[in-house]
């Protein structure tokens, strides 16, 4: 091999070099985009980045006052039940709604420079995960509050399992984002459909209600139908997984949420990521002619 190559680098090496160069360049772009996203988010407010923490907290408070009487009567940790679902769902919502128009919105960049199309959905998704971590601080605050006001010790080592969940959620979000942003390039009314769909999705996922309370006294068919809807809803699995970590770990010394469940969320994540990246990579070269 070396003999053939001589002083000229082999085409393969050259190709590898170019790939490396382009990955380095695009990583830099993603980093700058993420930084910009986070900074711009709350630029015009006095308390700035604090909003990232306050926002889920205030939202949770509203829902808490409305629903705690209804669903959280005999649950001292209902606030956690709510907040777990909320920040998980919000991470998905921000990631997908920001990624959806990202290719079209950045047409100025895409049609004037040679940039990889991947950087836009990826940077939106990284920003969403960073926002999730900010919200996590809010969650920790609520946990402290519950511990003192309700007298329930809610902290356990299983909090660390959040780190196991995040990559799976990230993959799922990214897959969804790839699919949505590709569709948006071709069909601009997707955004309206998706917004409606998100509202429906919010109600189909047990965020503030508890499935047990809901299913009580229902006929077998309705019961089966609702349970089936939960099962095929990816967000249900993520929300429940996060609740296992934070909410159900109370007084429960199990560190690892079910192995089967973990495999389950990774399965969902990888499946959606696979479909998403397939669609995106096959069509991305044609984007510039359609935006």
């Amino acid at each position: 091999m070396e003999k053939i190559n001589g002083s000229n680098p082999s085409p393969f090496k050259e190709w590898m070099q170019r790939k490396k160069e382009s990955i380095r360049k695009n990583t830099n772009i993603v980093r700058e985009l993420v930084k910009k996203n986070i900074k711009v988010q709350y630029r015009n407010s006095i308390i700035g980045a604090l909003w990232t923490i306050l926002n889920p907290l205030l939202n949770m408070l509203v829902m808490y006052f409305v629903f705690s009487g209804l669903f959280g009567k005999d649950d001292k940790t209902y606030a956690l039940y709510l907040l777990c679902a909320q920040i998980t769902f919000t991470a998905m919502r921000t990631a997908t709604t920001q990624s959806l128009p990202s290719i079209v919105r950045n047409r100025g960049l895409l049609t004037k420079n040679k940039i990889s199309e991947y950087v836009f959905p990826i940077s939106c998704n990284i920003s969403a995960i960073i926002n999730f971590l900010f919200s996590f601080v809010a969650l920790l605050g609520v946990m402290v509050w519950v511990t003192f006001s309700q007298g329930v010790q809610v902290f356990s080592w299983s909090i660390l399992m959040t780190l196991i969940m995040l990559p799976a959620l990230f993959l799922f979000n990214l897959g969804m984002s790839f699919i949505l942003t590709t569709m948006y390039v071709y069909f601009r009314d997707i955004m309206h459909f998706y917004n409606v769909f998100l509202t429906l999705w919010t109600y189909l996922t047990p965020m503030f209600y508890k499935p047990d309370t809901l299913l009580k006294g229902m006929g077998p068919v309705a019961k089966w139908l609702i349970e089936f809807t939960f099962e095929i809803n990816p967000m249900y699995h993520f929300v429940e997984y996060f609740r296992d970590i934070i909410y159900r770990s109370v007084g429960n010394p199990v560190l690892f949420p079910d192995v089967g469940r973990t495999l389950g969320i990774y399965g969902i994540g990888i499946l959606f990521f696979g479909i998403g990246i397939l669609i995106f990579s096959l069509t991305r070269k044609k984007f510039i002619y359609n935006i």
């Binding site: 160069e21 830099n28 772009i29 980093r31 700058e32 930084k35 960049l109 420079n113 940039i115």
Partner: peptide
């Protein structure tokens, strides 16, 4: 300033 860094990255420069 942020735009300088973003545009620079697009042109292939590290931070």
């Amino acid at each position: 300033k942020e735009n300088v860094y973003l545009n620079g990255a697009i042109l292939g420069y590290s931070r």
